[in-house]
Design a protein around this nucleic acid. Structure first.
Length: 541
RNA sequence: AGGGGUGUAGCCAAGCGGUAAGGCACUGGAUUUUGAUUCCAGCAUUCGUAGGUUCAAAUCCUGCCACCCCUGCCA
């Protein structure tokens, strides 16, 4: 057996060794009330990771016990996102698939004297729950007979009472220091149409009661959830013990994922979508899985990220640079390259006539290197930032009387500069070194700088949007995120749509591999090409 | 305040009584037709803190401190 990847696998290893468990099964349990985000990816990787490691099982379990929040749309989106990540579950299950059985278990609890129908209103229950330091007060209905409880509970199911008029409570301990154990409500009356069961039910089990039952019924051995459920574990166990589950699933908690500056709360994401601040749940700026996919982030990169940050119980916040590093690493290995410039500056090669095609390497990392033909002529554009009239020390790019290589083509020397009326450089006049052609350079000239270029005769304009993330800061609550969008800029590409990936900052290294972060639009006529391009995607087009 | 948790570098995170893995970030240097990549080197005498046990403590014990979660008929 391979070494445990985290403390959960360590626990499982021990249980396996002691014979406490034999078959391993997990479940990924989202509530279908929103789209999955990066945080869910961590849970997905954990649950499916355990399944794969122990040759076990893992279901997709939709926790739909609150019909007022849940929708078919979300369930479908969840399935798509999981498919994108490449995980395959053994079964799709829903809490609603087990409503009848959960109901029967509730009756069993009543018969066992472990549950009672309470007549108090939600407000009264809250008032009598006590505080963190004081015990709560017992409900006057706490000692009803089994027969009466059974009758009342059946009447609840039959629709005899209004919403909130009665509820079923577990009879545990109103003096427990753990507030979750102070006779928690386990069934409530709720007249709400459920997206799967319609109006069949008017009572619904609470998470705390339904979850351990559903886990047990599915054969889940380890129920992995986030830290905030630690206080619920005694209740989870109470249900399993009182109902005699054997083997009883074990709940283990781990820390949820936080990423610096990323808004990860479903509530805010939902608000952004509803208020039209973003184009939808799949807007590339959203930290949702569908959004991040639209950015061009490869699923493998996200999974790699999840594997690298690990699983622990310490509350933590991972720097976004870690996520970016995983994406960059993947893209660097797999993404196609292309040349492009953001701020066009005309460059004319005065001693070059005619045209030819040069070979451009598509991906320097691939074993069998492919190349793409790029038309070369005397009329080119280079980026404004690649030329300097007044170069700082160690400036490797083009300057007056300086040499530079046009990537995949020739070495050129800047002979002259045409200054426009505004005093800015309007055009650069160069001469090329004929023997320096890329691939068989016999010129003997060594240049430090290599710059990109596009052919002015064949290139086309493309508008590009550099998607930032939806950032949060210390006061992100209620903030207008639309101000956070990055500005558009014009990019010129060589011929076809060749998304490029760069983000050049003066004096800083090229950041060539930030591809997939751009949505290309056709400037002319504002036609949306509507492709969110990553170099990898482009490769397939 | 009662209960439940967590504290190892700027950020994640291994470690489980034998003398602090790894990654991100960062800093040097080499290679480079992307100032990228790649490569090589550096980066915690110390594990929240104060004591104790031990030949030996990040690991065991005790006290203290800090942070997170819990008073929905949400999950």
């Amino acid at each position: 057996m391979a070494e445990a990847n985290n403390f959960i696998e360590q626990i499982i290893d021990e249980e396996l060794e002691s014979g406490k468990v034999s078959a391993i099964m997990t479940r990924f349990p989202p509530e279908p009330n929103g789209y999955l985000h990066i945080g869910h990816a961590k849970s997905l990787c954990l649950n499916f990771g355990v399944k794969e490691k122990y040759n076990g099982k893992c279901n997709l379990f939709l926790d739909d016990t609150n019909p007022s929040k849940e929708k078919e749309e979300f369930e479908e989106a969840i399935k798509k996102d999981i498919a994108w990540l490449g995980f395959s579950y053994d079964r799709i299950t829903h809490a609603s698939d087990y409503y009848e059985q959960i109901y029967n278990y509730a009756e069993k609890e009543i018969e066992l004297g472990n549950a009672f129908v309470c007549d108090m209103s939600p407000e009264e229950i809250s008032l009598n729950r006590g505080t963190l330091t004081e015990a709560g007060k017992e409900s006057p209905n706490r000692n009803r007979s089994v027969e009466e409880n059974l009758k009342l509970f059946r009447e609840m199911r039959a629709g005899k009472y209004a919403d909130g008029e009665k509820c079923l409570r577990a009879k545990i301990d109103m003096a427990s220091p753990n507030i979750n154990m102070r006779d928690p409500v386990i069934y409530r009356i709720l007249r709400e149409t459920h997206y799967r069961t319609g109006d069949k039910w008017c009572i619904y089990p609470m998470y705390d009661f339904a979850h351990p039952i559903c886990d047990y019924l599915q054969g889940v051995s380890h129920s992995l959830c986030t830290l905030e459920f630690e206080d619920h574990r005694p209740l989870y166990d109470w249900v399993g013990i009182t109902l005699g589950f054997n083997p009883k699933p074990r709940q283990i908690e781990f820390a949820r994922l936080n990423v610096t500056n990323l808004v990860m709360s479903k509530r805010y994401l939902k608000k952004l979508v509803e208020e039209g601040k973003v184009d939808g749940w799949d807007d590339p700026r959203m930290p949702t899985l569908t959004g991040i996919r639209n950015r061009g982030v490869p699923a493998e990169a996200l999974k790699d990220f999840c594997a690298r940050i690990g699983i622990s119980k310490a509350n933590s916040e991972v720097q976004i640079s870690y996520l970016e590093a995983c994406i960059r690493e993947n893209l660097n290995l797999n993404a196609e390259r292309a040349m492009g410039i953001k701020k066009p500056l005309k460059l004319t090669i005065t001693n070059y006539e005619g045209s030819e095609e040069v070979d451009f390497e598509i991906n320097p990392n691939e074993e069998e290197k492919r190349t793409r033909k790029v038309a070369f002529s005397k009329n080119l554009f280079i980026d404004e930032d690649d030329f300097s009239l007044d170069p700082p020390p160690k400036y490797y790019r083009l300057k007056k009387d300086g040499y530079v290589r046009l990537k995949s083509a020739y070495i050129v020397k800047c002979d002259d500069v045409i200054i426009g009326e505004d005093g800015k450089v309007k055009e650069v006049l160069c001469s090329y070194v004929k023997e320096s052609k890329s691939g068989n350079d016999t010129s003997g000239i060594k240049v430090k700088g290599v710059i990109q270029w596009v052919n002015a005769d064949t290139c086309r304009d493309i508008e590009i949007r550099d998607y930032g993330y939806l950032l949060k800061d210390e006061e992100y609550a209620g903030q207008d995120f639309s101000e956070r969008m990055n500005e558009n800029s014009v990019m010129i590409f060589n011929g076809k749509v060749e998304p490029y990936v760069f983000n050049r900052q003066f004096g800083k290294p090229y950041q060539l591999i930030r591809t997939g972060y751009y949505k290309l639009l056709d400037v002319k006529g504002k036609t949306v090409l509507s492709q969110i391009v990553s170099l990898k995607d482009n490769f397939n087009k």
